[in-house]
Design a binder for these strands. Structure first.
Lengths: 200, 200
DNA sequence: TCGACCTCTGGATCGTTGATCCAGTCTCTG
DNA sequence: CAGAGACTGGATCAACGATCCAGAGGTCGA
């Protein structure tokens, strides 16, 4: 993970990783069977940095928001995860967080199909958001956004709204994410029929 | 794209692509400067399959839902896009759809910061959802889900809620996506102050 | 004490890949 | 018809993921 944090996923090779660990590259293949295994392990390792709120810790909405915000923070702390998110996440750390999310929603009184749909929406929202933002954070974020902004302004005839508002002109990622999460939680909360709130 | 649809992104090499086109691999480098350019072009090419609703076509909510559903359908029609989504999307086809999304929300009466946040949330939700689902669709979906489901049931002591409900046990992706989109649109609609609806 | 056995290591090597060099071909224009 | 620019591709390079295979280190029972 130190190697990934420093140089990104593109520059991670089995040889360089072995050199970093002070061994030969062949040795790594005794512990993992393929390079994808290394990437899967690294991706799951990110999630130990996602704090899991204590059970029965107040309102379900706060607990879910805490989990999702931590989820996003961990992914953004390691931007190389953006490229890796398009692979099955079945590691124990991911599953633990996902289990907590489902359990919290279940205890809050959500029933199918809303239970699965709510967890589905929250997970995919945070994954998509972190990936989008991490994409623009690789390398020099300021330079990338400036180039993209100039490109949009140069073609402002084709993309007028995008050049005026738009995610690349003075967008505060944190504010947008928080608002988007509120939209989603509002909608989820509204899907629960009255009288279904065990501990609202 | 035919090569990608048939064999996936892992088996796309410049040599095989050149052979498919009936030329040498060197020739490709006259038209593109790197392999990443090919992938960027292929990813943007997907979006021509996303129908853009006509302007002034009824309620903004229906227009947005149509765009987002088409967006998801195009990504799912080419599951190899899941691995590629973690890269900057600045192609003309993507920008056209993004421009339409922002313009529609602007015309519907949304103002900052809700305008940017709504577009941000919708884009990231559909990207995350399509990526998650495409991840499980590569190869034999039935087999992958069965293996994952058995794994969860085997560790049902650690993941009880996930083994009972959970995205891998009888989850209808289409239903969950539609419900999640409704949650998001409900929340977005609620963020607009009364009296701001030019054409509600 | 010894030797069989399992865990673990790594130099050498294979096939493949992305990318480049450079000589050559094609086509269009004046 | 000559020259310039657009385009092609065989040969080649460094780097990569992965494997082969010989061997080191430790453990345990006879």
């Amino acid at each position: 993970m130190a190697l990934l944090d420093e140089e990104g996923v593109g520059r991670l090779t089995m040889r360089r990783l072995a050199e970093r660990l002070g061994t030969g590259s062949t040795t790594l293949y005794w512990h993992v069977s393929t390079k994808d295994d290394v990437l899967d392990l690294a991706l799951d390792r990110i999630f130990v940095e996602v704090p899991v709120p204590e059970a029965d810790a107040g309102h379900w909405r706060e607990a879910v928001a805490t989990l999702i915000n931590g989820w996003r923070g961990a992914l953004l702390a390691h931007p190389w995860s953006a490229t890796l998110l398009g692979r099955p996440m079945l590691g124990p750390n991911v599953l633990t967080r996902s289990e907590y999310l489902h359990a919290t929603l279940l205890a809050a009184g959500f029933a199918e199909p809303h239970l699965t749909a709510a967890a589905y929406a929250l997970s995919n929202y945070v994954i998509g958001s972190a990936m989008m933002q991490a994409t623009w954070r690789t390398g020099d974020e300021q330079a990338a956004r400036r180039v993209a902004g100039e490109y949009l302004r140069a073609h402002s005839d084709r993309y007028p709204t995008l050049a005026a508002h738009g995610p690349l002109v003075g967008n505060d990622w944190d504010v947008s994410f928080r608002l988007g999460l509120d939209y989603l939680l509002d909608g989820i909360q509204g899907s629960r029929a009255p009288g279904q709130q065990p501990r609202s």
